[in-house]
Amino acid sequence: MSDQIILRVATKIIVPTILLFALYVQFHGDFGPGGGFQAGVIAAAAFVLYALVFGLRRTHRVLPTWVVRTCASAGVLLYGGVGLATMIGGAEFLNYNVLAHDPEHGQHYGILLVELGVMITVFGVMVTIFYFFAARGREDL
């Protein structure tokens, strides 16, 4: 599809907007609809669109496979790490009250980190799955 000039130009405008929107959904999830799952999927959709229009080779250059693969595992580790941190702080697994002096602030930090972990994992997983499906059976990649 890389010879379609309208698609190319529109994609160049849309992709950063989608990424920005994903971050908005991520960090506004406390106040409105949104959160880690949605933000991760939307961010992945931006790269899927880029790959559909510009091809997988260029997308691999922008976002190498090892990066998304590391993302997929780093998010789960971050989530579990927050749980371990609360246990070190003396509370139950994933009881965020001990993360700050004020329990309510602790909850804020905990939810922020946990949602970030979810977003990173979902983003990494979705892009990884897409990469593997798109690269299947193509020796030139």
Binding site: G35, F37, V41, V122, V125, I129, F133
Partner: peptide, 15 residues
């Protein structure tokens, strides 16, 4: 909410 995301992941494995 979580079931939807897990659903698409399992669909990917099936595909």
């Amino acid at each position: 909410l979580t079931a939807i995301v897990v659903g698409v992941s399992t669909t990917a494995v099936a595909l």
